Amino acid sequence: MILSLILIVLLSWAIDYINGFHDTANAIATVVSTGVLSARNAIVMAAILNFGGALLGTHVATTIAKGIADAQFVVPQVIIAALVASIFWGLLTWYFGIPSSTSHSLMGGLAGAVVAHAGWHSLHWTKLEEIAAFIVISPVLGFFMGMILIVVILWIFRRVSQNRVNVMFRKLQLVSASAMAFTHGQNDAQKAMGIICLALIIYGKLHVAPGHAMVVPLWVKIGCATMMALGTASGGWKIIKTMGSKIVKLRPIHGFAAETAAAIVLFTTAHFGIPVSTTHSITGAIMGVGASMNASAVRWGVAGNIMVAWVLTIPASALAAAGCFKLIQPFF
């Protein structure tokens, strides 16, 4: 019994490590593509801030641990199947350089494994509908926030020379990239924290009194934060290239607007415990900034491929987790 708990913890840390190198681009692609920081320095900065962000806030972890399905139906093999499916989808999309959502693959995997075990009635449909809605809402918010910000910024600095604007926003982009890296850690590391806490509740190692907030153990926070930071430090070059240059070419002023827009969306959703995708938010913001410049500046074919991956993530992860559950069920 204790071995399966250890396996769940190790798989959860693997998810955070993969999320780190898979989603490194969320925080640093624009700051690298605009030449503000070298890739090496940007990755070091992102790793440190990912770690710091992961230690703060537990609202999203609570949603993952208690909001997806009834705890009575979430047996150890359900969690293991969900984690394996999420790892598979994360590595597959990373291999092809597609910036998909580790968050949604994890939630899809959990839902698919629970249904395979106990049926559709075991899911908390209201919370799932909210999460599904934000698959659309978060990139749309990022898109329009990015578009509005860049228009306002360009109007404010309309009388300033382009060279001076570039110098100014090269410095400001360090601030926006830092905020993006911090919110990435704050939002994404909590998914694995929630899974570990869910397992601890199942095994009777963590007790949550009715009507009281769940308290995430310090060792869970530090473990998840460390693995995400290590994953970020290893880089994710394929997706950095896709996010930084294949969607739209950016200058520092555009990178600042995109990162700031995405960070605003992520700070807000993390506060309310809504597990959204950092990938969706920053990609939407980049497209919004690009579209404000010129609609033809956005490579809509690349953007379309990314959106297809977004749509497929939850059902593909759910099916993979359901299949994995059936395979491992005889061993429990």
Rank of each mutant, 00 (worst) to 15 (best):
A132S: 13
F73Y: 15
K249H: 14
R299L: 07
F96H: 12
I131K: 05
G255V: 01
A209C: 04
V31R: 00
F272N: 11
V74A: 05
M1R: 12
V74I: 15
I148G: 12
A257M: 04
H22D: 02
G97Q: 10
K246R: 15
G97S: 10
T58W: 10
P210Q: 13
I195D: 02
P330A: 06
N41S: 06
I222V: 15
K246N: 01
S38H: 02
V208A: 05
D70H: 13
A39S: 05
A192L: 09
S178I: 00
N41P: 02
F332R: 07
H22W: 04
S101M: 12
H207W: 12
P210N: 07
F272S: 12
E129Y: 08
T30F: 00
A316W: 07
W310L: 03
S86W: 09
I314Q: 03
H22F: 08
A316Q: 10
G323H: 14
T242A: 14
N50Y: 06
S86Y: 09
N166K: 14
T283P: 04
A111D: 09
N294C: 02
S176V: 02
A27E: 00
A291M: 05
R40L: 06
H212F: 11
S122R: 07
A69P: 00
V298R: 00
L154G: 06
F157A: 07
S161V: 07
I131A: 02
H124Y: 10
V208Y: 04
K191P: 07
T268N: 09
W125P: 06
I328A: 13
G52Y: 07
A25R: 05
V302Q: 07
G57C: 02
I156S: 10
V160H: 03
Y95K: 09
A199F: 01
A309R: 09
S178A: 15
V167N: 13
A42I: 00
K241P: 01
S33L: 09
L250D: 01
L10S: 02
L141R: 01
L230T: 11
F267R: 05
I148N: 12
C224M: 11
A321S: 15
I18W: 10
E259W: 01
A309K: 08
H184V: 06
M293F: 11
A177Y: 00
W300E: 04
V115A: 08
A113W: 06
I247H: 01
I68Y: 02
A303F: 11
T226C: 09
I150R: 03
G194H: 04
M147P: 03
G185I: 08
I8V: 13
L49V: 14
S176N: 06
A81W: 06
M287L: 12
A181E: 03
L250C: 02
H22K: 04
M45R: 02
